Simulated assay, not measured.
Amino acid sequence: MRSVHVRFDAMLTKLLQEHEASKKERQGRPDFIDKLMENRVTEDGQTITDVNIKALISDLFTAGTDTSAVTVEWAMAEMLRNPAILKRAQAEADAVVGRDRLLEESDLPKLAYLQAVCKGAASAPVHPSQPAALLLRGVRGGRLPHPQQQSPPRQHLGHREGPEGVGGPAGVRPRPLRRRRRGAKYDPHGNDFEFIPFGAGRRICSGKLTGMVFVQYMLGALVHSFDWRLPDGEEELDMEEKHGLTISKAVPLKVLLTPRLSAAAYI
């Protein structure tokens, strides 16, 4: 762990030094690190140090990598169990992007069905990818003598019985998300409490925007670029869950893929 820490810290130190040396070249289009370095002194007079910035970047790497990868894997598994959803997502990508180029991040706002699929995959009732510990101070009007940390059953978070539920135990269900009052714009960033994959309030995930874009882009690229099927002889996916801070597949997803775009698109 010490060896890994030294290597990781050296990488982050180099990253900050490069940003400091090249900040004039990015005037008018600062990135996340530029913004942190520009606001080293906060409104209440506190100072954001390099150690603070490194810690936040480290959190984004460690927390964001696993949860995003787990969400994408579960989404692919559920789409393979529901081929109609996979085909519809591919048809939407073909209509927006075509088959002569790869999907780009700028295409994502036009892919409403893909966004709905990703929100369905990220919803807790399907396969929770986020830790779910809550700091409780009171329950039903009462007040606890000391704040207590509790881990509620994650499969119940965000769950609503009936056809209007956000996801549900049967897997990815993008249609209910689209039918609700905000449709594909159903907010996953802590403003709609029926659906809080990143938490809410002051302790909301700092990587919520990056995380949702990453999941949409990764899943969209995989769905658009390839046709997917189970290996020969396998008729059903093993959907057993492995519990931890995140809920990942006990058996890693294994599928066969076939390119579906023009050959020039992959060059």
Rank of each mutant, 00 (worst) to 15 (best):
H5K: 14
R7D: 13
A10W: 04
M11T: 12
L12C: 10
T13F: 10
L15Q: 11
L16E: 06
L16D: 04
L16S: 05
Q17Y: 08
E18L: 13
H19I: 13
H19V: 08
E20S: 15
S22K: 13
K23P: 05
Q27E: 15
G28M: 12
R29N: 13
P30Q: 09
D31C: 10
I33S: 08
D34V: 02
D34K: 02
K35I: 13
E38S: 14
E38W: 07
E38V: 01
N39F: 07
N39S: 12
D44F: 05
Q46R: 13
T47R: 11
I48S: 06
I48E: 04
T49V: 06
D50I: 03
V51T: 15
N52S: 04
I53E: 11
I53K: 05
A55L: 04
S58V: 10
D59L: 11
L60C: 11
F61D: 14
F61G: 11
F61Q: 07
T62H: 12
T65N: 00
T67V: 07
S68W: 02
V70M: 03
V72K: 06
E73Q: 15
E73F: 05
W74V: 12
A75K: 15
A75C: 10
A75T: 14
M76V: 00
N82T: 12
P83V: 00
P83I: 03
P83T: 04
L86K: 10
A89H: 10
Q90L: 09
A91P: 03
E92F: 07
A93V: 06
D94W: 01
D94T: 03
A95P: 00
V97G: 03
G98S: 04
G98D: 07
G98I: 01
D100G: 15
D100A: 08
L102T: 13
L103T: 00
S106Y: 01
D107E: 07
L108G: 03
P109A: 01
P109R: 00
K110W: 02
L111G: 01
A112R: 14
A112E: 15
L114K: 07
Q115W: 01
Q115D: 02
A116T: 08
